[in-house]
Design a protein around this nucleic acid. Structure first.
Length: 648
DNA sequence: AGCACGCCGACT
DNA sequence: GTCGGCGTGCTC
């Protein structure tokens, strides 16, 4: 009499597209296998042993052949929760990618020591902390509505600094503790280590260490795994972390919050390139939790959702946005040109603010390749051979074209004929040097990727920070100078405007009450909107234009890249089955490969993603003689920029 | 990806 | 006769 078979459905942990599905294995007698566990299984011709995740235990298999046995259970911890599996499945299908690729982003590698310690000493459920004092910055009904299950909200954060922390962080912590006090978990995903550090500090104060779980890039794999395991416990928890925190397992999810979703750091650089915002939308929908996109100005994607009526907005009761003074260079008297190029109004204002306390100088990201502009009309200097941007190279080397490396000899401006240029987007070290000379005797503090700084004291200093690396000044800065705006806006990127605005608003949020910001080299509608606090109008107009010319976020973008013949055949067949598809290409990329970028309406995108995924699997299984294989990405990190550069 | 199977050319 | 080239196909 045969016993009822026990069959484990297993997803191999493999990057190979054709293996990104479930395989059935027999569970041998005497072995216990549970869903979510990592197991070792024989795979392929030589029955090589591979690891995989058990997705299900069943009693019969559709498979015609004889089943192989599960070799071993790696650990009895059920690391892959059903919620995570369905999230990963949806994220993968939305991006025409593999589920295993998403799981690799979501589940940290196992640490044996950490796991043993956790199993011996599981977190014992303490009493939940009591709810925080209600916030006075928002209408209580609005806040309550925002936290309703299934609610989706763009949450406009308040500006300002409250002693040691940005006011916005207190509000976030207050909202998160409110949800926790109801016995539900919160997942917060932020762009930057700085936000992780601040919020973690505040959250620990608010709800205690045992209810906070932190994920960030600086952690060792062991630490990451240990925080991951904390989420698997039955007690609710507040998870705070960068991109990958959005996947953290928690019990009874009540709120998914994404901070500054316009920030580029929310775009995952690994396949299948999911954006935190998209993952958050899917997770909130699947779990029924509330979704909050929190920022000072909405991202274009958030704005689109607001205009569709899919997302509500919640604004602070009082608008405390600091005043912005545009002080264009043109016609303004600047101090010694060898030193800082500063309009005199800004110079005087900074000098005065320095009597009171620190002044923030926000500069272009250091390390960004600086460009050249005409010294007369400020038109961007372009190569006379290929129209590529001219770049200033390292000391001693000549200026060259960034695309074709042609030296920029005998250059003249295509617009006004001038033959002299000036650098734009200069590096931070140089700015620091110049400003130090312009304000002798004032201490200069640098903050950028290399010089990490969370806070500066409230005494007079010039704090020169790259965008995104601004330290918090206790009590806020007395003034801010927003430099290099023009070169930020001139970048060859479709996200130039939104990222620039976001960076500026962030600087504004760090000002002390009543302090002003000076916008030095930007003119026209953007400067006017900044001064008039009507940035949202600017973004609405931008979104309208994107709709008109069919650019994200009003359409989705898919990219295919591979051998010319294969890619063209695929593009042709897609053009027939998708009448709404707009194909841009083929564009030659490295070593014989070609690329197409497709624009597709949201409604058609899921089907296109399915077909592209099928094409990838097919291409991987029938390997042609070329070593170049078909690659596909959906809304990938670089698709926008590829489109921008190919359409110029 | 790996790995085995398979069906053609020059070797002790 | 057979050793081994890599093109082809599969993985519960």
């Amino acid at each position: 009499m045969a016993e009822r078979p026990v069959i484990a459905r297993v997803r191999p942990d493999s990057r190979v597209p054709q293996l990104d599905r479930e395989f059935d294995y027999r569970v041998p007698p005497g072995m216990t296998v549970l869903p979510g566990q990592r197991v070792r299984i024989p795979m392929g011709r030589g029955s090589r042993v591979q690891t995989g995740f058990v997705t299900e235990i069943v009693s019969s298999s559709e498979f015609g052949g004889t089943l192989l046995d599960v070799e071993d259970v790696v650990s009895d911890v059920q690391v892959l929760t059903p919620e995570l599996l369905s999230l990963a499945t949806e994220v993968a299908s939305r991006h025409a990618g593999g589920v295993s690729d998403v799981l690799r982003l979501a589940i940290p590698p196992r640490g044996v020591r950490v796991e043993k310690a956790w199993q011996q000493n599981p977190h014992s459920g303490g009493d939940l902390p009591s709810p925080p004092q209600p916030s006075s910055a928002f209408d209580p009904d609005g806040l309550a509505q925002m936290l309703q299950p299934g609610a989706r909200t763009w949450w406009q954060l308040p500006y300002g600094v409250n002693s040691k922390h940005p006011t916005s962080h207190y509000e976030i912590v207050s909202v998160a503790s409110t949800v926790l006090a109801q016995g539900r978990s919160v997942v917060i995903s932020v762009p930057d280590w700085r936000d992780v550090a601040f919020l973690h500090e505040l959250l620990q104060e608010a709800v205690g260490e045992e209810f906070v779980s932190r994920f960030d890039a600086d952690q060792t794999p062991g630490e990451r795994y240990s925080h991951y395991l904390r989420g698997l416990e039955a007690d609710p928890v507040i998870v705070i972390g960068a991109r990958h925190a959005i996947y953290a397992p928690v019990s009874n999810l009540g709120l998914v919050l994404v901070l500054h979703d316009a920030d580029d750091l929310h775009r995952e650089p690994l396949a299948p390139y999911p954006h935190t915002r998209d993952v958050a939308l899917i997770r909130a929908e699947q779990s029924g939790a509330a979704l909050v996109l929190a920022s000072f100005v909405p991202s274009l994607a958030a704005l689109r959702l607001i205009e569709m009526g899919f997302v509500n907005s919640l604004h602070p009761r009082n608008d405390e946005r600091p005043r912005v003074v545009p002080t264009s260079l043109t016609g303004a008297e600047s101090i010694s040109p060898q030193q800082a190029r500063l309009p005199s109004i800004a110079f005087r204002a900074v000098a005065q603010a320095l009597q009171e306390g620190p002044v923030l100088i926000q500069v272009f990201r250091s390390g960004f390749a600086p460009g050249l502009a005409c010294s007369q009309c400020r038109e961007r200097a372009r190569c006379r051979e290929c129209q590529g941007p001219l770049r200033a190279h390292r000391k001693g080397d000549r200026e060259r074209c960034a695309w074709c490396s042609t030296p920029a000899d005998r250059w003249s401006c295509g617009l006004c004929g001038s033959t002299t240029w000036v650098p734009i987007g200069q590096a931070i070290g140089r700015t620091a040097n110049e400003l130090g000379k312009a304000f002798p005797g004032v201490s200069v503090i640098q903050a950028d990727g290399e010089h990490r700084k969370l806070r500066v004291p409230s005494k007079p200093a010039l704090v020169i920070a790259t965008r995104g690396a601004e330290p918090v000044a206790e009590g806020g800065y007395q003034a801010a100078l927003l430099l290099d705006g023009e070169s930020m806006l001139q970048r060859q990127s479709l996200s130039a405007l939104t990222e620039t605005l976001d960076g500026w608003e962030h600087a504004l949020s760090l000002l002390s009450h009543g302090a002003q910001a000076f916008l030095t080299d930007v003119e026209g509608p953007i400067a006017n909107a900044m001064a008039a606090s009507s940035v949202e109008g600017l973004l609405r107009r931008e979104l309208g234009e994107r709709q008109h010319v069919r650019l994200p976020p009003s359409v989705r973008l898919a990219t295919i890249e591979g051998p010319t013949a294969q890619v063209s055949t695929l593009a042709d067949s897609l053009a027939i089955s998708f009448p709404t598809l707009e194909a841009i290409g083929p564009v030659a990329v490295k070593s014989g490969a070609h690329r197409y970028v497709f624009k597709i309406p949201y409604s058609e995108a899921p089907q296109l993603a399915r077909e592209l995924r099928a094409a990838v699997v097919h291409s991987a299984v029938t390997r042609g003689r070329g070593s170049v294989r078909l690659r596909v990405s959906f809304d990938g990190a670089s698709a926008l920029d590829e489109l921008a550069s190919s359409s110029q």
